[in-house]
Structures are given as structure tokens and as C-alpha cells.
Nucleic acid binder design. Sequence first.
DNA 1: CGGAATAATAAGGGTAACCATAAGATTTTT
DNA 2: AAAAATCTTATGGTTACCCTTATTATTCCG
Lengths: 219, 219
Amino acid sequence: MFIEQLSESTEMYLKAIVEMSDRDMVAVSRLAERVNVTPVSANEMVHRLGEQGLVEHTPYKGVALTEKGREVACNVLRRQRLWEVFLYEHLKIEWAQIYELACSLEHATAPEVTEALATFLGDPRTCPRGNPIPAADGSFTPLDGLPLSEISVGKTVRVVAVNATETDVLRYLQEREILPGQEITVLEAAPLHGPLMLRMPGGKEVALGMSLAEFVFVK
Amino acid sequence: MFIEQLSESTEMYLKAIVEMSDRDMVAVSRLAERVNVTPVSANEMVHRLGEQGLVEHTPYKGVALTEKGREVACNVLRRQRLWEVFLYEHLKIEWAQIYELACSLEHATAPEVTEALATFLGDPRTCPRGNPIPAADGSFTPLDGLPLSEISVGKTVRVVAVNATETDVLRYLQEREILPGQEITVLEAAPLHGPLMLRMPGGKEVALGMSLAEFVFVK
DNA sequence: CGGAATAATAAGGGTAACCATAAGATTTTT
DNA sequence: AAAAATCTTATGGTTACCCTTATTATTCCG
Ligand SMILES: [Mn+2]
Ligand SMILES: [Mn+2]
Ligand SMILES: [Mn+2]
Ligand SMILES: [Mn+2]
């Protein structure tokens, strides 16, 4: 089966869907938020993706990837995360920037380059943000962890991944040392979805807003 | 001065112009051939480039890059050739394929990545196809050599660069060991722009068509 | 059950790059 | 100086993505 060259836009939609679908279908309006377009535009695109056999849209229910779509999406994820490893480990680029930079490269990367890069990097299993790198065949163990926003007060957890994508957000977290591998104790959770109070390894206390805490996966 | 994000198409046109302009202006129809569009389409694009201050078009004479255009074009060339070095030296990708693969990556490469890559590679001066890599400031010593097609019979020369871009053409030359560094003797030139007869280092004799010989720069 | 919220569609536009065909305008060649 | 070749411009299309502003359909919830 031929894998035609898909547009950057198409790849970004598919990546968004695979990242958002834990178990159930993805609402088109959520997808729209994620890829930063209006719901109407996302709806149009979902139709186009459907025509290409990449997604299945059930009106009023949501979108799901087809097998073909999942394959493509995982491959985009693979390219993205391999580049993140290269940019961070070899080019020594600032941790907060690697997602954004890799997100451009991922669409310009031929299969030959992807596989040669994987070999060059020693077939890494996770990217510097802690996310698993899908294998060449698309197989992929999803992240085993919970968002920090769902951890109860008093618990001590270890960060496994930081799933933010915006450089500003990543830089904010980096400055507070909320990074994969760090051990964090949840001291307090303010009411009404207010900020969490966290104790970091050095003993420093840090306040973290709930929407940011949703990006931080811990175990 | 801000360098807005230019489209892939724009970058390819600028790169084509800088590569084709030795001394005089570039005819729009030549440009059209190079970027594989119709002359009308190239004309439209030249207008757009003119409005953006990247080229100067003199009707019936040709196009020339402005200073701004030359800067952008050299930067594209820098990105392209740095990626070629990486793909060849580090990822061990087949020589004939690196141009095509680098030609995708070049448009997805932010300045931070370009410079970090240059440092990682040890600031190489030439790419595996023998072309000089422009410096970060755009400075750039043009290739010192002549096309093999202009060498007279009996002369022995050394290949400095192979300027073909199509993978098929590069593979054809690679198979005949017409590669940078090789020493070649022109044994015979058939009349009517017919093929050249060449003696290669091993003593093997190779026939090479004139249009292919135009890609091979020697000294 | 019925209204509110949410989702989908319809309709009308916009831009960037491409295409083709058909005139003009200019240069080159005879 | 014509004629031929080349270059430019004028028109009119196409596709992929995006937008806004209705309108309609469905689901959710009190
Ligand atoms: Mn639908
Ligand atoms: Mn991307
Ligand atoms: Mn013009
Ligand atoms: Mn290119």
C-alpha cells in the first residue's frame, strides 16, 4: 500500500487525534482547539480526512483514526520525537524549544531519514519530554501515568512526561524544574481548581496552575 | 530587519536564481525550467518576489536577486548543504539521495537549528557534492572550476563538484564513479555535442553525455 | 419533556501557488 | 525590414486550507 505524501496540515490533525484519543472518540471541537482553527474549519478537514480513509467521523460523536490513519499518526509521532532526541542530545538545543523545532522537521522527513536517524540515535525509546517513541512498525506503548492535576494531596510522585507543546509553557515548567525524572510532593490543592502547591527535590515550594498541571504526567 | 517565514516555493525560486546567476541576470524561462513550472507561472512568482523586495525584474532582460534576496538564498543553500553533510557523514545515507532529502529539510529548519547543526558538524566548508557552504553571514566563495563539458580533449582534471539535483542523475554519475575528488582524462569528444569519452582512475573508460557533463565541475 | 448547549452544515469569502490558452510586446534572426 | 522566436500580460480555472455568519440537527440536563 502506497503512502502518498500528506500535507503538513493533515499530519498535524492526525497527530492531534492520536494524542487526544485515550480510549474514546475525539470531539471535533476539541480537535479544533488543539490545532488552533475554528470548529467549522476542523469539520471541513475531518471530512477531507474521511474521504482519504484516514479517520472515521460519527456525527455528534466524534472522530477516530482508521488503521491507516493510526499508522500515519504514529509515524509522525516517531519522526517528531526522534528529532527531539537529536536536537536535545546532539545539537544541545534548549529543552523548551525542541518540541517546536521538531514539529517543523517532522513533516519534511522521508522514511529513509527517519530510520537512519533512529539508528544514529541508538533507537531511543523515549523523547526528552518523556514520551514514548513509536517503533518503525507503528507499535507503541502508551504512557503509563496520570496527570499531576489528578494526584491527591500528600502524595509524592515522579514526573514521567511533560506533554505541553508551546515553547512558553515548556520554558515556564523548565524554570521551575518540573521535568521528567523529578520527584514532586503535592502539598496542597487550592479549591475551585486553584493552583497546586508542590515541593520540589531541593525543598523549594512551587505553585502550579491546574491547566499547567494537566500537562505533567506522573507515576 | 525581520526575516518573515517564507514559503517553500519562495525559497526554491530564490535558491534556483542564486545557483543560476553567474554574472548576468537569469531569464525567467530558464528559471521556469529549473523549478519545473510553466513560464507563465514563473512570471507570476517573479512578480510576487519583486513585491516582497527579494528580486528585481527587468522585463525581457531577466531577474536578479536584491541584497535581501541574496541573503535569503544563501541561507537556504547553507541549510541545504549542512543537511547534506549530516545525512551523508552521520546518517550514512546513499550519496545520490542526499540532495533530494536535504531539499525537503532545508525549508523546515529554524535558524537555531541551522547554527547548532553547523557547530555539531564542525563548520564544514563543502558539502558531499563538492559545493561550498555559505557562512552564517551569507558570505560565500563561489565554486572555482569549469564544467567538464568545456574541457578540451587530452586534458586531465579533478572533479570539484557535482551539481546535479535529481537522484537518478546522481545515481548514474555515482555508478560511474564521477564523484568529487576523482581524476578524469578527457580522451575524446564526439562531434555535434556528442558524448565525451573519459578515462577514470582505474583505467576504465566511460562515455558521458554532454548534458550530464555540464553538471560536473572540474579544475 | 423542553430548553440550553453543542455540533454540524450551508453559504459566501480569501489567499497562495499552480495550470492553460490567447493576445501583445520585444528581441533576435534572417 | 520582416519574420520568427521569446517574453510578458490578460483571463479564467483549480486545489487546499483557512475564515465568518447564519441555520439546522442532536444531545444533554434540569
Ligand atoms: Mn461528517
Ligand atoms: Mn508539526
Ligand atoms: Mn514584471
Ligand atoms: Mn528544497
